[in-house]
Simulated assay, not measured.
Amino acid sequence: MTEALLSIEGLRTVFRSGMGEIAAVDGVSLSVPRGRTLGIVGESGCGKSMLSLSVMRLVPPPGRVAAGRVLLEGRDLLTLPKAEMRDVRGREVAMIFQEPMTSLNPVHSIGDQIMEAMRAHEPRAGAAELRDRAIAALARVRIPAPERRFTEYPHQLSGGMRQRVMIAMALACSPKLLIADEPTTALDVTVQAQILDLLRELQSETGMSIILITHDLGVVAEMADEVAVMYAGRVAERGPARAIFEDPQHPYTLGLLGSIPRLDEERETLLAIEGSVPPPFALPPGCRFAPRCPFAISPCNAAPPPLRDIADAHEAACIRAPIEASLALGNAA
């Protein structure tokens, strides 16, 4: 097996509220091999983005990481002093945030913002050197006329261009791990394909690892080597991408895959997952998916099921697994 660059062990992130502490991420364990892509998929509110912010130690108050470890090459990021963690961000682990227009400063030029990211980690570099490197970074992400774009402002660029700028900023210091949180949100399919191709090319050139966070299963199928499916703050299923798509073993994964059209199948109707995600302050005592699951039986409500091996490197948190992937959700026994 490929050596893990990042290992997340039992991560729990909570928020204080009038009803006590609410867990947005609850006991998540994942690993990211060197040079590989881990796709994290799930509905909005399942904890994907909060997981990435926990790794970066950017959880907004009143949230906090309550338990677990985040090991980058064996070093626990959660125990580092703040100054050391600031040095890790950008240099070793970088992040592309969900909406570039809110992540880029509207009153500073594109070039100034890229140089600022470089200057934070290389304070001795001169202005001319930083300028040349920032322009080279823009060219690296296939932005045409990078010298001119260097002087422009975020509002002067298209959505696809702004996303490329965010990638250029993230890769400015050649990180070992790139966390891409919904990198193709709100982009049309042509630009989306260009951004994904760009990430693949840059990964091939640099050997970096990628955590790709998305709700788009098509993006995951195209990009990821391994996949983790999250539901209500926990990992419902994880394994090689091929196994997840060809032989899903959790009813939630079955529902997600059954809700999208496929070119290799003829179906008059798509499947739908009944109900809605339970609020974090009113989670069921057993399996969190049980109230929506057509496979649920009485033991499902007794205790949260742990992830367990179904096949080689393929795990699912379901007491009824293995499940035949050919079963329709509406025809569960």
Score class of each variant (00 low, 15 high):
L199P: 00
E122I: 02
P106F: 02
I195R: 04
D216P: 06
Q98I: 15
R89F: 06
M161D: 03
R124T: 14
L138I: 07
D112E: 15
I96P: 13
V107S: 09
M85H: 11
E147Y: 00
Q113I: 12
V165C: 01
L77I: 09
E122T: 05
H121L: 14
T184C: 15
G207I: 00
P100E: 10
L199T: 07
L212T: 05
A128D: 07
G159E: 10
P183H: 08
P146I: 12
G90W: 06
Q192M: 04
A83M: 04
R140H: 02
S158E: 09
E152R: 09
A136C: 04
M161S: 05
L178V: 15
E205T: 06
Q203R: 15
S209G: 14
A136H: 01
A139P: 05
M166A: 15
A172N: 00
E84A: 11
T190F: 01
Q203Y: 01
A83V: 15
T151H: 11
A117Q: 15
P154T: 04
L178F: 11
A83K: 08
E92V: 01
A145W: 13
S204A: 12
E99M: 07
R162T: 12
V141I: 12
L138Y: 03
R140Q: 12
G90T: 13
R89G: 00
F150W: 14
E99H: 07
M208T: 00
Q163T: 07
P100M: 11
M208V: 08
G160Q: 03
R149M: 11
M208R: 08
S103K: 06
Q194P: 00
T102M: 00
C173L: 12
R164I: 09
A145I: 08
E147Q: 14
I167H: 01
F150E: 03
P81C: 00
I110R: 12
